[in-house]
Nucleic acid binder design. Structure first.
Length: 884
RNA sequence: GGGCGGUUAGCUCAGCGGUAGAGCACUACGUUGACAUCGUAGUGGUCGUAGGUUCGAUCCCUAUACCGCCCA
């Protein structure tokens, strides 16, 4: 059981993870009488590989899950992946193009889908393997995929029910059309970006010649090519300039059509000429104007955003099949040639881009399926208002409400192949049959109707919205569903509050009898690079979490994530931070090696409450304090505070002081004290392992098994509860000793005393308590402060450096070793600091308002502080006097 | 235009009403058989700016500047 001198994370991590997983520790149901605790994972895309966002997200979930497991809850962390419609189809299409030089259309739907499934089987497991490397303790035996048979059944059932309730319907309106993927996408998948563009002005001549001195109306547009589809020119009803033109017509050049001049509230008279062209079929605002005024909607483009020439749209034949941007150039040239060109202004314009395809989205008039989100949002809003679901940090509910209150119909149909095909059939009788299966549809239609299934698939987020219950077996009423819905916490980033959180709320409430899908939504920050920039492949600033795991270990990465998870928006990741926590792991390893070398071993009979040695009583109290801090911090989702408490306790308290202070005991002759201290040191270290386990599961598990022979694994250990720990007298004594040693060290360094030199120390004016403490810790003080002697005397020896310590003065007779000018300077500096502190305190105490109004305990504290400062000041002055 | 964040040590960030903190970096010294992935000591901040509330403000309020995100 000897520990190696170095610790190598890689081997250990793989081995331990396997042991946990195969040991069934991640599975629920092991504590059937315990209260369940449930988290559903935000399902990563099957196409994905682990990035920093995943690392943060899953670290937090794993900390929670391991913590609650240790606290005795019956934990289910439900894992799975998302089929990610567009993303996956895109990946496989690219693969096809590369491999076989073919495309999905040539292959046909069936063959293509077969290929996607094959790809999923081959590559879909990458991300889940990577989650394992992070240490995520999900129950992999319950892994789900959004296109599993079970989940697909849930999707069909939800769709059919919502349709029959009138909450899903078909509608023809403008949608965001992605001309690369040739599908509609939802508003959320569109990203508006400011891009370089221009505003061109054209003249449309009046059909009736001159009216009110006007022969033409000048309109401006950022999209010249759409003029071919103009159905009207609109002006504001209050616009005097055009008052007598409303109801007249203009000639639309190129298309050679007559279009009316209409009055509508939409045009801004202050902007440009105050007249706008209305292209109802290709612009959202124009669409509404056209609807209001009964203006025809003229379709100009096909699914690839190429112009089409039809008898209906009057687009000249030469435009047929021309790309929209090429058509723009043609229109501009022709307008100029016709003499209707009226100038161009370069400007930045907002343009919609597809978040996946990265091309300009075209508003297109098509028939699509919609969810009446407004209706479903009502209970979802109420549930957050009344506290059934809480956002942490709480201010995110504002974002949630803001969006939910203004929610638009959700376009859920996609003209893709990869996804849940919509369970709707069209009969040759012209009717739509929405049923869970073709048999049901046929039954509904009757035997003589020929059915054709809707070709479209559903938005990926439709199935994700069902995740908290579909993964638990719904629509079957499984025991797991009963036990683990609603879930306890959802951990996710703010970027998918709308995409996912809001929709899960809607669907959960609707299909689970009004019960919310989760009690708490913990929203964490997004991981950015050191400079605060979003990590992206194109910027080349991506830090790969797996590389960090390779270099520093999963524990170090996890601890970094937790330590940086302070509630905020951004999390800028510096590699040095990960390195620092790797060092922390090394420190723990070495502390364990120290223990091993010094006979520090677990003693089943050791009871920290009964410890007699002061330093042991003290460390036990510190352990209890750390335990309380960590517990509270995790409960409050303040992972950084938990991490910081652990780091401090393990390194600054246990390693720096406790271990150093017990060395003389461990090598001493007091066998009783030695035995107790060995047992206590082992106990305290064990507390570190247990408390740290949720954050650093691997190294703690490894040390757990190597520092004692134990019956179970640490993952299965109980979160400690302590009764009767904490001893104020022991704390006071140890703190005094630590202060004494620190002060001597500080003076030594400042006086440039050779680090290796042992020096004498004389304590003057010590009260009984200080004398006792000194006696108790003589060996430790001498060792840690590098003293050759430690004695009490009645007066300060000549040529001493002097340290005031409460009522006593600690004198270091350093004749010949130090420069007394320097010592005087040091004491004067000390005096300055005291004076500064005093200034603050006096300012308060001399303020009648403070004395009258401050809480009594603050007043007492201030007075005590002043007394201490005064005592110290007197000592320093005395010391200066002695130096002459 | 609407909303939400941020501005604290050279860097990355905590703290958020009662004496300014951590890690990294930096400086000096390396003594102690766990650890140089370390130890000891130290340098470094008028807590964006201006008002206000308060006995007291980095912390609360108002305004303002700059940076960032989301929505239109």
């Amino acid at each position: 059981m000897t520990l190696d001198t170095k610790f190598v994370p890689a081997e250990m991590e793989a081995r331990l993870y396997k042991q946990w997983e195969e040991g069934g520790y991640f599975k629920p149901g092991r504590k059937p009488n315990a209260k369940p605790f449930t988290i559903v994972i935000p399902p990563p895309n099957v196409t994905g590989s682990l990035h920093m966002g995943h690392a943060l997200n899953n670290t937090i979930q794993d900390v929670l899950v391991r913590f609650e497991r240790m606290r005795g809850r019956d934990v289910l962390w439900q894992p799975g992946t998302d089929h990610a419609g567009i993303a996956t189809q895109m990946v496989v299409e690219r693969l096809l193009a590369k491999e076989n030089k073919t495309d999905r259309k040539t292959m046909g739907r069936e063959a293509f889908l077969k290929r996607v499934w094959e790809w999923k089987e081959e590559s879909g497991g990458i991300i889940t393997q990577q989650l394992r490397r992070l240490g995520a303790s999900c129950d992999w035996s319950r892994e789900r995929f959004t296109m599993d048979e079970g989940l697909s059944k849930a999707v069909r059932k939800v769709f059919v029910q919502l349709y029959k309730e009138g909450l899903i319907y078909k509608d023809t309106r403008l949608v965001n059309w992605d001309p690369v993927f040739e599908t509609a996408i939802s508003d959320l998948e569109v990203e508006t970006r400011e891009t370089k563009g221009a505003m061109w002005s054209f003249a449309y001549p009046l059909v009736d010649g001159e009216i009110d001195g006007l022969k033409e109306i000048v309109i401006s547009t950022t999209r010249p090519e759409t003029m071919l589809g103009d159905g009207a020119v609109a002006v504001h009803p209050s616009d005097e300039r055009y008052k007598n033109l409303v109801g007249k017509y203009v000639w639309l050049p190129i298309a050679n059509r007559k279009i009316p001049i209409i009055a509508d509230e939409y045009p801004d008279p202050e902007f440009g000429t105050g007249a706008v062209k209305i292209t109802g079929a290709h612009d959202e605002n124009d669409f509404h104007v056209a609807k209001r005024n009964n203006i025809p909607l003229i379709m100009l483009m096909d699914k690839k955003a190429r112009m089409i020439s039809t008898p209906e749209n009057h687009v000249p034949e030469r435009y047929n099949g021309v790309d929209r941007y090429k058509a723009r150039e043609m229109v501009l040239a022709e307008i100029e040639e016709l003499g209707f060109y009226r100038g161009k202004e370069e400007k930045m314009i907002p343009q919609p881009f597809g978040d996946r395809s990265n091309v300009v989205i075209e508003p297109m008039l098509t028939e699509q399926w919609y969810v009446n989100a407004g209706e479903l949002a009502k209970p979802a809003i109420a549930a957050v208002k009344n506290g059934d679901t809480k956002f942490v940090p709480a201010n995110w509910d504002k974002t949630y409400f803001e969006w939910m209150n203004n929610i638009q119909p959700w376009c859920i149909s996609r003209q893709l192949w990869w996804g849940h095909q919509i369970p709707a059939w069209y009969g040759d009788d012209g009717k739509i049959y929405v049923e869970e299966t073709e048999e049901h549809a046929q039954a509904a239609a009757g035997p003589n109707v020929k059915l054709t299934r809707d070709e479209d698939v559903l938005d990926t987020w439709f199935s994700s919205a069902l995740w908290p219950f579909s993964t638990l077996g719904w629509p079957e009423q499984t025991p797991i569903l009963k036990r683990h819905y609603k879930t306890d916490v959802l951990v996710t980033g703010f970027d998918i509050i709308f995409f996912w959180v809001a929709r899960m709320m809607m669907m959960g409430l609707h299909f689970m009898d009004g019960e919310v899908p989760f009690e708490t939504v913990y929203i964490h920050a997004l991981v950015r690079d050191e400079k605060g920039q979003k990590m992206s492949k194109s910027k080349g600033n991506v830090i790969d979490p797996l590389e960090l795991i390779d270099e520093f270990g999963a524990d170090a990465l996890r601890f970094t994530m937790a330590a940086m998870a302070a509630q905020g928006r951004d999390l800028k990741l510096a590699k040095s931070r990960v390195e620092g926590y790797r060092n922390f792991a090394t420190k723990l390893w070495n502390a364990a090696r120290f223990a091993e070398m010094n006979g520090v071993a677990k003693d089943e009979n050791f009871d920290p409450v009964a410890a007699r040695v002061t330093v042991n009583r003290w460390i036990a109290g510190e352990a209890a304090r750390c335990r309380d801090l960590v517990t509270k911090a995790i409960e409050d989702h303040k992972y950084n505070e938990a991490a910081s408490a652990l780091y401090q306790f393990a390194w600054n308290v246990y390693c720096d002081w406790y271990v150093e202070l017990i060395k003389p005991i461990l090598t001493g002759t007091d066998e009783t004290a030695k035995a107790e201290t060995r047992a206590c040191a082992a106990w305290a270290f064990e507390q570190i392992l247990v408390l740290l386990h949720p954050f650093m599961p691997f190294i703690t598990e490894e040390l757990w098994s190597k520092t004692a022979s134990r019956s179970g694994m640490l993952i299965d250990a109980s979160w400690p509860t302590y009764i009767g720990l904490g001893d104020a007298a022991a704390d006071a004594e140890m703190n005094w000793v630590i202060r004494l040693i620190s002060e001597i060290r500080s003076v030594r360094a400042e006086m440039n005393v050779n680090a290796g030199a042992k020096i004498p120390c004389v304590i003057v004016g010590a009260a009984q308590e200080a004398r006792m403490r000194t006696a108790n810790w003589e060996a430790e003080i001498m060792r840690l402060a590098r003293l050759s002697s430690l004695v009490f005397e009645d007066s300060v020896p000549p040529q001493s450096a002097q340290i005031p310590l409460d009522e006593a003065t600690v004198a270091l007779p350093l004749e010949g070793m130090i420069d007394f000018t320097a010592e005087r300077a040091r004491l004067n500096k000390e005096l300055e600091k005291i004076a500064k502190d005093m200034g603050g305190i006096d300012g308060r105490l001399n303020n009648p308002g403070f004395v009258a109004k401050a809480p009594p305990e603050v007043l007492v504290e201030s007075r005590e502080l002043k007394a201490q400062l005064e005592e110290k000041k007197a000592k320093v002055l005395e010391a200066l006097k002695r130096l002459g």
